[in-house]
Structure formats: structure tokens, C-alpha cells
Simulated assay, not measured.
Amino acid sequence: MPLRPLTDIEARVLGTLMEKARTVPDSYPLTLNSLVAGCNQKSSRDPAMNVTDAQAQEALDSLKLLSLVFQSSGSRVARWEHNFQRGVGVPEQSAVLLGLLMLRGPQTAGELRINTERWYKFADISSVEAFLDELQERPEEKGGPLTVKLPRAPGAREQRWAHLLCGPVDMTAAQADSSASPADAGLQSRVAALEEEVATLRSALQNVYDQLGMSQPGQDK
């Protein structure tokens, strides 16, 4: 049965759960506070969002009905984890690529290989492309395609890939959105890696506050 298109906030919530399960396993499953902080990170997110607690909870409730997330039992504070791989019916490598596409927007196969290193180490770019191709050619009886290869942007050497979990992609907007030079892209990747390390530390700190039942200083409630 095909999955209904996700909203942007549902995709951000789902992608964040998928990311934190791999990058900060000691803090996973996530509390609502940690999840919202992850959704609103300034690093490794495209576009940047400002998701409220209420919006995140609404997205969790909707995703639960789709069997894509579930609430953990046995914890004093409600904690959430994803069920993406089983819920969508894709292998681990495909789930990793879709998670990164949901969080960071369209990327080339080379960018995906670099950005997924903390999630899964692909042998080479061709293996990334093989899984992307498989997702693009996914038959209708299994739910239909989940990725699409975007038209080559002016001046770009490689084509980017996008996910289809939120429905069809606006090809014109996606093409116009890619204007960074290879040097800019390399710098952005390095900056993103550093920002992600900071975000990981913040997530771990948020988990400590959650365990203590406290709010971080300056955090609005």
C-alpha cells in the first residue's frame, strides 16, 4: 500500500529520529524536548525550521498512525523512536539515504556518501548510486518510487537526488536552488561536519537535562 505524502514537519521529525538513533545512541529514544531541539538545529538541516512542541507532537501522532514511529514503554518521560525501515519496507542503506535527503534536501551521490558516514559507510559512490537507482525504480506494487534524479543545474558537474516522501518535487525550484560551486560545496561539507559535532554535543546535553527533569537555561517552555 503506497504511503501518503508526508508533511514537511513529519519528514523533519522522522529524519531527526533516524539521525539521532545513529549519531547519539546513548540519548535515544528521544524525548519531545530533544526531538524538537534536533528538528530545529541550524546545522545539517535544509531548510532550517522552527518546529514547536505542539507541531512535533502532532507529527508524532500522525506518524504513529502510519506505523513509522512508536512510543517506548518503561520510561518516566515519554520517548519516541522511528520504525522507518520496516514501515516503508526498504533495506538499511536505502533508509539511510532517504533519512539524509529528508534532513538536508537534494544532494549528489558524492555528497550523500560523505554525509552518511556517521550513519552508514558506503564502499564507494557507485554503491550509493545503485541504491538511489533502486529507490527511483521501485515498483508500484511496493509503493512506487521514493527518489528522483533532478535535472542537471547550470554549471553543475553532477546531478542531485531528492526524496519523494513528501510528494512530487518541483523540478524548476530544485534546479534553481543549486548554484554552489564545487569549492563552495566542499567548504559547506566541512562546516556542516563541524556543526554536526556541536549539535551532537547539544543533544547529549539536552538528554542530561531531560534525565534530571530540568530545562536548559534560556529555553522557553
Rank of each mutant, 00 (worst) to 15 (best):
3 L>D: 00
3 L>K: 02
5 P>G: 03
6 L>Y: 07
12 R>I: 14
15 G>A: 08
15 G>H: 02
16 T>D: 01
17 L>G: 02
18 M>H: 02
19 E>L: 03
19 E>A: 00
23 T>V: 15
30 L>I: 09
33 N>A: 14
35 L>W: 03
51 V>N: 05
55 Q>R: 08
56 A>Q: 05
58 E>T: 13
58 E>A: 14
58 E>N: 08
59 A>C: 03
63 L>Y: 01
66 L>C: 01
70 F>C: 11
72 S>K: 04
74 G>I: 10
75 S>Y: 15
75 S>R: 14
76 R>Y: 06
77 V>N: 09
80 W>V: 06
95 A>T: 09
95 A>P: 11
99 G>H: 09
99 G>A: 15
114 I>V: 13
120 Y>Q: 11
131 F>N: 15
131 F>K: 15
134 E>R: 15
136 Q>P: 00
137 E>P: 01
150 L>N: 02
154 P>G: 11
155 G>I: 13
156 A>H: 15
160 R>Y: 08
164 L>A: 04
164 L>P: 10
167 G>S: 08
168 P>S: 03
168 P>L: 08
172 T>P: 00
174 A>L: 01
174 A>T: 04
175 Q>L: 11
177 D>R: 01
178 S>Y: 13
186 G>L: 04
189 S>G: 08
192 A>P: 01
202 R>D: 13
202 R>W: 09
213 G>V: 09
214 M>H: 10
215 S>P: 00
218 G>S: 01
219 Q>I: 07
